[in-house]
Design a protein around this nucleic acid. Structure first.
Length: 602
DNA sequence: CTAGGGTTAG
């Protein structure tokens, strides 16, 4: 039997349906040209005030970064309703303009439009990533006032927003959570994640065990909590217990083992993963790179490329950060090559990572090339370049750049000032450093933090103002950390100040009793000064701690091969020649300049 | 017939 020919709808019907569908999905449109076409159709059909179409247009424009057009659409509706206001609030938040979102919220109330539960969810989303406890509390008050505290979405958003406001916020979130009439899995997960953010593993675990049902996010969140804390044994137990393990679970474990330095275990899990994605590969490659395992890192990176995976911004940035950390220039260059072949070479984020990587690897000219070629520099770009120059003794150049960035209208932040102090420090500009430090709050509104104090103390110590450095460390409003004592110790050694080193010893033992490395540095100071009694004391102390000092090693990369050196290392076959060379070099340096800092600034 | 929640891995 012959099948009847299907009746085809006339083309105009299908075209109309086509447009209807398009209008329906208007808010999902992410292509600006298509969007403009659609807008023309909307205007032609006189639908620009349609209560269903107008919000969609606003959303679409905001997603295409066209806030001007979005605002225009809004202004053409004579009496906007809640939906339209909500759409505009969300549009501002999509464009990272929370203050405009709040302004819209105020406008809306002035216009006599009541907010609804959506309004608050959107506003709270605008607080995420920020630490705005007072703002969140204010929204919370409005939520109570308008009676939305029992709408499950709103308190869930509140928990999330509070959880980003430090320990106080998390406590408030906890109160809110306990007071909720009903909680869903999102409420529990948000609360667990909040507790983990402030490092309260045990409380998080309590909730995790208590919650009525757990989904994969619950398990993965808890797993991540343990891996971030380096608790790999507990993490592994949880991992085994999980009813279902997805890519995230596996990747979390791989990442955790990488972080604790167990690359073998990490690789074993990586190989066993049922499925891998870009993130998993990135974790493993970065893990190798961060630990300086060149062959493994590059080998895996190449396999990743062969597997046809295309790096995204996050992958590039993580791998480059790992390269910067270990000084793995070879892999960093490969990543740069692949960046050059992609559109990411215009990305400020990616270029900043490249600048940092090259600077940390000592390739200042390459860092500078990237910096110069950058179309849109942001504060991070300047900071990375300034810091890079500063670290390598090019303090004058760093300061020059600092003046240029101010000229171009950038406002220095705390990171910039660390770079500036570092520049002064590594160039022997003691007076300048002191001046910058004591005027940074007045000039740039940056209140000195521990890093800034650390720079200044190091600067004073190196400059021979040991007494002043100690006084500052004792009098500063922050608790000195191990790095600060370490730098004071270095200063004592450099200037043979034995009596002050005694003070450091007492404090150091209190702060970090097991840090045998610092103890041995101290014993060296006594040794230099010929105080053999104290040398013996410290050796005894180190013995009682029972952890021999792990000697610090220097790494030198030559043609993708790493050479490791330790103090007095004689293991190299040509070590005699090497030491001969070093002796010659230091003789030469002594003749050049007696000061140990500031030797290579142009 | 509109829209919303958690971000859990790099």
């Amino acid at each position: 039997m012959q099948m009847p020919t299907p009746i085809r709808a006339p083309t105009w019907v299908s075209r109309r349906r086509h447009f209807e569908q398009k209008l329906w999905d208007l808010d999902k449109c992410r292509d600006i040209n298509q969007l403009k076409q659609m807008q023309a159709i909307v205007y032609k059909s006189n639908l620009q005030q349609d209560p269903f179409i107008a919000p969609k247009l606003i959303t679409a424009f905001s997603l295409c970064r066209q806030m001007g057009s979005a605002l225009k659409v809004f202004s053409q509706v004579p009496y906007p309703n809640v939906h339209l206001y909500n759409a505009l609030i969300r549009a501002h938040i999509h464009n990272f303009n929370s203050s405009q979102a709040f302004a819209t919220f105020v406008d809306m109330q002035c216009a006599g439009i009541f907010p609804d539960n959506f309004t608050f969810s959107f506003l709270l989303k605008g607080c995420s990533g920020k630490c705005w406890l007072s703002v969140v509390s204010m929204i919370h008050a409005h939520v109570v006032k308008w009676g939305f505290e029992d709408d499950i979405y709103v308190p869930n958003s509140l928990i999330d927003a509070y959880s980003k406001c430090g320990i106080v916020g998390v406590r408030t979130a906890g109160q809110l959570f306990r007071g909720m009439k009903e909680r869903d899995v999102v409420s529990w997960n948000s609360m667990i994640s909040a507790l983990l953010k402030v490092g309260d593993l045990s409380e998080a675990r309590k909730l995790f065990d208590e919650m009525p049902q757990r989904d994969r996010v619950s398990w993965n969140t808890m797993l991540d909590g343990y891996t971030k804390a380096g608790e790999m044994i507990v993490a592994f137990e949880l991992f085994k217990k999980m009813p279902l393990r997805d890519v995230v679970s596996w990747s979390t474990m791989v990442s955790g083992y990488c972080k604790v330095g167990d690359l073998e275990m990490a690789r074993m899990l990586f190989d066993k993963m049922p499925s891998k994605n870009l993130v998993s590969w990135t974790i493993m490659v970065s893990g190798y790179a961060e630990k300086g395992l060149v062959k493994e890192a590059i080998g895996l990176y190449m396999r990743m490329e062969e597997a046809g995976l295309k790096l995204d911004v996050a992958a590039i940035v993580s791998i480059l950060a790992a390269c910067a950390e270990s000084g793995m220039l070879s892999l960093g260059k490969r990543v740069h090559d692949s960046v050059e072949r992609s559109t990411y070479k215009f990305s400020t984020l990616v270029c900043n990572a490249l600048i940092d990587m090259y600077a940390k690897c000592g390739c200042l000219h390459k860092a500078y090339n990237v910096f110069n070629g950058l179309k849109k520099r942001d504060l991070v770009s300047w900071n990375a370049m300034i810091h890079g120059l500063a670290m390598h003794g090019r303090g004058k150049k760093a300061l020059e750049l600092f003046f240029r960035m101010k000229q171009e209208g950038f406002v220095p932040d705390k990171v910039t000032l660390v770079g500036i102090l570092c520049a002064c420090n590594h160039t022997g500009l003691v007076d300048e450093g002191i001046i910058y430090f004591y005027s940074m709050e007045k000039d740039y509104g940056v209140i000195p933090e521990i890093e800034h104090y650390g720079c200044l103390i190091d600067l004073l110590g190196r400059g021979g103002y040991i007494k002043e450095a100690f006084d500052l460390a004792r009098k500063m409003p922050l608790e000195p950390n191990i790095k600060i004592w370490g730098s004071l110790l270095g200063a004592c050694r450099m200037h043979k100040a034995v009596e002050l080193a005694d003070d450091v010893l007492n404090l150091l033992v209190k702060l970090e009793p097991a840090n045998a490395g610092k103890l041995s540095a101290l014993s060296n100071i006594y040794a230099v000064a010929g105080d053999w009694n104290n040398v013996a004391n410290i050796r005894l102390m180190m013995k009682s701690i029972g952890r021999p000092k792990q000697s610090g090693a220097s790494l030198l990369a030559l043609n993708d091969e790493y050479h490791e050196f330790t103090v007095m290392d004689k293991s190299h076959v040509k070590s005699d020649k090497i030491y001969h060379m070093i002796d010659g070099l230091s003789q030469h340096l002594k003749l050049l300049r007696p000061v140990p800092v500031g030797f290579c600034d142009e």
